[in-house]
Amino acid sequence: MKRLAELKQAGHKAFVAYIMAGDGGIEKLGEQIQYLQERGVTAIEVGIPFSDPVADGPTIEAAGNRALDKGITLEKVLDEMQRFDFEVKVPLVIMTYLNPVIRFGAERFTQEAKKAGASGVIIPDLPFEHRQLIEPFAKQQELVLIQLVTLTTIESRLEEILKQAEGFVYAVTVTGITGSRDELAEEVGAFTRKVRELSPVPVYAGFGISKESHVDRLRDDVDGFIVGSAIVQAFHEGRIEDIEPLIDAVTAPHSV
């Protein structure tokens, strides 16, 4: 995770890829991670399928259902990660809804995630107010609990959340669920600028990012981009190379 701060200092933008673990079979997980790190992504979010993903749009929900149909569980994903026989060169962040973690046991989850080589955890339905359920265990394992902030986060909470932010801040760029969008709302630029001013760690924009035009618009207001649905769909349809221009658009050195 330190690398993310260094990247920011060097003036480079980060590209964080989200994948749905086990979509297409658990054996695909290692392949996808290897592919993405070869292609130069900065970090990878490993999504855990859940039966009721209320923060997700149709693309990720469908990917999750395909993984569930193959019997993928949080435990299987962590096991598989512990068996990787290649060198993982980028930070891995586990993204999961809260219930599978509670069922697995919060402490055991952080221990196994650490063994699996994860550096952080994102739990979209665990608000800042209830982070005590997970954070103490995550701290023991030196995993960061990534916080999300959104266009609707009120000022006082925003400051509170950012004060304690670690790793990076996930700035949600739509008022809505995950999924590709044509346009981003007007106020997004101002929002990410404000978050970036207050945040001690890099700020990455996510939800709805799927095009170079989105990247162009926000480039100066964020430290990186998180791309989910577009990648998940491209892997599913066997045309991941289509995403390469987007990765390049973010990571290629730019005149500032």
């Binding site: 979209p124 609707t152 986060t153």
Partner: peptide, 25 residues
């Protein structure tokens, strides 16, 4: 036990995506 508001013993709370926190509050 936890943040007392909105809990019945160990049950309850506000486990919603961040976008909804404002509306819930």
């Amino acid at each position: 036990t936890i943040d007392p508001v909105g809990f019945f013993g160990r049950y309850g709370g506000q486990f919603v995506p961040e976008t909804l926190m404002k509306a819930v509050k």
